[in-house]
Nucleic acid binder design. Sequence first.
DNA 1: ATGCCTTAAGATTTAAGA
Length: 288
Amino acid sequence: MRVATWNVNSVKQRVPRLLPWLDQRKPDVVCLQETKLSDAAFTELLGGELAARGYEIAAHGQPQWNGVAVLSRVGLDDVVTGLPGGPGFPHQEARVVAATCGGVRVHSVYVPNGRTPGSDHYHYKLAWLAALREVVKTGPREAMVCGDVNIAPADADVFDPAAYVGSTHVTAPERAALADLQALGLHDVVRDRWPDNRIFTYWDYRAGMFHKDLGMRIDLVLASTPVAERVRAAWVDRQARKGTGPSDHAPVIVDLDEAPDGDIGPVVPPPSAPSKRRGTVKLPQSPD
DNA sequence: ATGCCTTAAGATTTAAGA
């Protein structure tokens, strides 16, 4: 099962990039953020194209800002929008939708930006993360939190830590809130897969930041232990950030092996017939 | 320049993003 997450920065503007990307990468589950579209407009815009590709849609949007969605062609059950009892600014915004896809509880999240450390929006960000934690905590064991968390987990996740001193995305309280979420047993599967690599998922549109590879890693796929154990590839699709009319974020793509089947027990390849696909496969981070 | 691009809304500009 291939799971991807992508902050598309307006799905309406990104249609010419999104549809070819779906055809190229063929993800089974797609978490989208910053769709910037009402649910009715989402369905009108993409319902036909996505249905033709076998996707069901769980969209949770609003007319102008924010907006998230889950697309799935491996089932889409028990859809929940928003965070029950969660904070708003002042009212709840369209920042999370969850659905069960292929046996995994998938949360597509767009964490508030925070704007300025200490601001009302910053405290809203921290409260929002705490509310997300409660939802995940009480949810199924097989879970993934995918999306734009608007936090660089470590200094290695920004191009220059000195450039971000005093800014959001790197402050200790934000990182602590993310660590609290991960303390539920969620693994940062891209970083776990590539512990020492320079990996970014967002590059500012301005000043040739992408060309110079000056970015941040703020789009994450977090997986609970039973899901993380199935990861066979985890990488950032930098290809999708190139060319004409890209989002300022690149997709993150994660491939999961089949769920263990109780009837067959642990799978051990016979020594005489090594499988081409057994074990973890080191895919290039960016197949340029 | 201290928001250098891009988006949306809707108006000749503003708010927002990270």
